[in-house]
Design a protein around this nucleic acid. Structure first.
Length: 592
RNA sequence: GGGCACGUAGCUCAGUCCGGAUAGAGCGUCGGACUUCUAAUCCGACGGUCGUGGGUUCGAAUCCCAUCGUGCCCGCCA
């Protein structure tokens, strides 16, 4: 609804300025502070004051006069407050907003007929997913859902690095060491069991006997050569390790939940010859040169001093070379490609982009979303190889445990006599616990570095998931109390809603906030900023809680029209919050 | 040394892209509100030279320059 209002205001302003032959390049449309009555305003009068030769407030007044609100559907009044032109919404705007939000898919934007692949997580299959890596699927999943709400046709990919040196090391270690010599696994799960070989292998290469290390290096080299040559045997040896570890990682990611449409293996682009093809085409570009036995790209014309090596002296390709082939494959199938990736890959990603561009690709439709590292207190990093870091499984277990304690502590204080069952308690603990972890991460700008601290990550107070989830539970509670099914409210709502009955400030504010949701989706999707939806859920929760406090829905002294209208507003609120939470990947609880 | 990012209240963060109305939340501290559709809620108080210094502008947390601090990167690893 808000997008329509905004369009209308823009064209009305444009027309008013044109009528007076004033520039229309910057309409100065903005959202006014909370204590101003309007929902949209323009500060254009500031800029025009010089040109018109009058003070800004006078210019604003003249512009307001120029606009005929009778011709506008969603604007009721145009008022000025000093230099600002304020637009107040019409009854039609309020009515249509409530109407639109009673549909349970509220917030979805029209189909754009544009496909986009969101690649996220893509953690190397070397061991259990730790909290440092968890930022990726949480942001990535939210971005994918956000784009889907914004009308794009979205696929989610996990790119499996099954071809690098680390995987060759892992394969060699898996085949070499005896399980009896390994420590007990931290969990009975393939990723925890196998990572022991990986860690032992890396430690051995670092300070094992020189001769044995040399032999091991030769074996590792032969695995890499085998993969490069598309050798079936090498592929099978690596796959034996990769598939087991990845299986364990997928189980953990599924707990978030993060699901993928496709797991794309790096070796695929070696076996099908596309990496070789990329190499030969790169060798032909003007920027390519051969030095010290390796093929490289001179990117200094792009301000990048470091040459990009795309073929090693031993003839094997590098990660980024294979990623070029991978991205050419993506562009054959999708209009856009978005990659969620750690900031440590920023330079590599830029090399990828330049290489693609030198091969004649338009890289405008390749976008990336960088997130900063998650460190442990004291500045220590998280490393699978060294075994430092907090495993995501442990974090989720702890989150659920703490949430369950919280639910149980609150049982005695509950006013509502809905008799939570054991299943309910378990459900709430899971929704709140995992929701809190996701919300804590998705609500922050990805570029900000995070230091992991248990108490902070699992704080259920603050501006956290339970705070916004509670609004959803409150909505469901009211709907159920009124005899409606929260899962399908439309059947139970009155057929005609008199939104004029929703006249208090609290009700108006709530409708206005609901109306902004589709706009927030569009804006957040355009900028790939899911954290804005988290900010929105907080603002929405505050607005709803004010309504909850001031506007009883089911009390005896509420007349039927008001009750019906408020019930519709609660249903609209429920859909808004449920869908906003859905974008964030946070579960919307029916009760808490 | 070079590149990129970040710096807003004691703490954790919105707001910065696209400059506009007294810079917003939460936590913490202090004081209030459950015979009421669930108090995981709400109301109030206290708390900020928006890292620092210049510049542009009618107007700067927001744009530009410089500078300091922190993180990440600068490998024929991924």
């Amino acid at each position: 609804m808000f997008p329509a209002l905004r369009d209308e205001v823009a064209s009305a302003l444009d027309a008013a300025l044109s009528a007076r032959e004033l520039p229309t390049d910057d309409l100065g449309i903005e959202e006014p502070p909370d204590d101003v009555d309007s929902v949209l305003a323009s500060s254009v009068a500031f800029r025009l004051a010089g040109e018109v030769g009058a003070a800004p407030p006078q210019v604003a007044a003249e512009l307001a006069d120029e606009i005929d609100v009778d011709e506008l559907r969603y604007v009721d009044r145009v008022e000025t407050q000093g230099p600002y032109v304020n637009f107040l919404p019409s009854p039609t705007y309020y009515a249509e907003t409530v109407e639109a939000a009673t549909a349970d898919d509220y917030g979805h934007r029209p189909d754009r007929d544009e496909s986009v692949v969101v690649e996220h997580t893509s953690a190397n299959p070397t061991g259990p997913v730790h909290v440092g890596r968890a930022r990726n699927p949480i942001i990535g999943d939210a971005v994918a859902t956000l784009l889907s709400y914004a009308g794009y046709d979205v696929d989610r990919h996990y790119y499996v690095n099954d071809a690098g040196r680390q995987i060759a090391v892992f394969t060699w270690a898996y085949e070499t060491f005896d399980e009896a010599d390994l420590p007990e696994p931290q969990r009975e799960k393939a990723d925890y069991e196998l990572v022991r070989y990986y860690r032992k292998g890396n430690a051995f290469l670092e300070d094992g006997p020189a001769a044995e290390v040399e032999a091991a290096e030769a074996e590792i080299e032969s695995i890499m050569q085998g993969l490069e040559a598309g050798d079936e045997d090498a592929y099978e040896r690596v796959t034996e390790v990769v598939d087991q570890v990845l299986g364990g990682m997928r189980e953990t990611l599924a707990r978030l939940p993060a699901e993928y449409d496709e797991f794309v293996k790096e070796t695929r682009f070696m076996q099908d010859g596309s990496t070789d093809d990329v190499v030969s085409r790169l060798q032909d570009v003007d920027e390519a040169f051969y030095e010290d036995g390796a093929w490289q790209l001179d990117l200094s014309a792009f301000g990048m001093e470091k040459p990009f090596v795309f073929l090693r002296a031993d003839g094997t390709s590098l990660y980024t070379t294979r990623d070029v082939a991978h991205h050419e494959w993506k562009f054959e199938q999708y209009d856009r490609a978005v990659t969620v990736i750690g900031e440590d890959h920023e330079l590599t990603f830029e090399e990828l982009r330049k290489a693609l561009s030198l091969l004649g690709h338009d890289t405008e439709n390749l976008e990336q979303l960088f997130y900063s590292w998650v460190n442990l207190p004291g500045g220590e990093g998280m490393s699978t190889r060294e075994g430092t870091g907090i495993d995501l499984d442990d974090l989720l277990d702890e989150a659920i445990d703490r949430a369950r304690e919280e639910v149980e502590d609150r049982l005695d204080d509950r006013i509502r006599d809905d008799d939570l069952t054991e299943d309910d308690i378990e459900r709430i603990a899971r929704q709140v616990g995992i929701g809190a972890v996701r919300y804590d991460i998705v609500a922050k700008q990805p570029t900000k570095a995070i230091t992991f601290e248990w108490d902070r990550a699992l704080d259920f107070e603050a501006q956290s998931a339970p705070y916004v989830q509670y609004v959803h539970a409150r909505c469901c509670g009211i709907l159920e109390e009124a005899g409606l099914d929260p899962g399908n409210v439309q059947d139970g709502l009155a057929t005609t809603i008199d939104t004029d009955a929703l006249a208090t400030d609290a009700e108006r504010d709530l409708i206005e906030t609901i109306g902004r949701f589709p706009w927030e989706i569009e804006e957040a999707a355009d900028d790939l900023e899911p954290h804005r939806i988290a900010t929105y859920t907080r603002e929405f929760a505050e607005t709803f809680n004010a309504f909850y406090r001031e506007c009883p829905v089911l009390a005896d002294d509420v007349d039927t029209d008001t009750r019906d209208a408020r019930l519709a507003l609660v249903a609209a609120s429920k859909h808004t919050m449920a869908n906003a939470l859905n974008v964030l990947g946070v579960a919307p609880p029916r009760s808490m």
